[in-house]
């Protein structure tokens, strides 16, 4: 039995099945906190612990799944191209606000975490927290953070942004719908984008543009900013 539970086919099909069920649950209940990734990760963790299966064995078998993260980032080139064609005249404005959002996000999280006494390793893992998981993980790996911790923080940020984002923007008097949806994608990546998508597909388009552009800026700027602040951390 254990041999079966530790086989590659089982690991793959089990992960697929659990994720599928978690997705169905989300479709039924529509609660942001019941995110399919959170739910299925939790179930799989419990399963591995209960049946005493070593994580390295499981991980080796599901590497095929993780492998698709990189081509998925490449695939973002398609919506990036399509949306840049749409916003032609506004491209400069969008790039400037993305740049400002990116820098303020990286700097503020580093400074706040440091002031609250977080260790260097944690601060590095927090730096790319605003961008979509596959990019944040790459940046975390590249700069010497803990990719798994980065994934967790990216989730916290996404859920926080999706739940409170539009309210915060209203309080801050950001009323223009394009500015709002761009900010949602920039700050809260995919989870914020699906929140915008639920308002209208037009909002979703600008959010996903924010998500992609902030991903590019963050991967370019994070190593640089961390290097500048190295001695202080």
């Amino acid at each position: 039995m254990k041999q079966f539970l530790e086989s590659e086919v089982f690991a793959l099909s089990f992960t697929l099945l659990i994720y599928f069920l978690a997705q169905q649950l989300q479709n039924k209940l529509k609660l942001i906190l019941l995110n399919p990734i959170l739910v299925s990760s939790a179930i799989i963790i419990i399963f591995l612990l209960v049946f005493n299966i070593n994580y390295p064995i499981y991980h080796e078998h599901v590497r095929l799944i993780e492998f698709f993260l990189k081509p998925a980032v490449v695939a973002m080139g398609v919506p990036l191209y399509q949306q840049l064609e749409r916003i032609k005249k506004q491209t400069f404005i969008v790039l400037v606000c993305q740049f400002a959002g990116c820098i303020s996000g990286i700097l503020s999280v580093i400074v706040l975490a440091k002031l609250m006494g977080a260790s260097k390793e944690i601060i590095i893992s927090l730096a790319p927290k605003s961008v979509t998981v596959p990019i944040a993980m790459e940046v975390s790996k590249m700069t010497g953070g803990i990719p798994a911790l980065t994934v967790a923080v990216v989730f916290i940020v996404g859920i926080f942004g999706a739940v409170f984002g539009y309210t915060i923007l209203k309080i801050a008097r950001v009323t223009n719908p394009i500015s709002q949806s761009l900010a949602m994608g920039t700050a809260a990546h995919g989870i914020g984008t699906s929140r915008s998508m639920s308002i209208s597909s037009n909002y979703g388009v600008y959010s996903s543009l924010g998500l992609i552009l902030n991903g590019i800026f963050t991967s370019a700027l994070t190593p640089f900013i961390l290097k500048l602040l190295e001695h202080w951390l």
């Binding site: 303020s104 996000g105 706040l112 944690i122």
Partner: peptide, 25 residues
């Protein structure tokens, strides 16, 4: 430290991106 700094920083990103875009527009 993780939750507080990540949440406050998310507010900063939202407001900065939104404001800069709205002003320039």
């Amino acid at each position: 430290p993780i939750v507080v700094s990540a949440s406050i920083s998310t507010v900063v990103v939202l407001v900065v991106t939104g404001w800069v875009h709205q002003l320039m527009r």
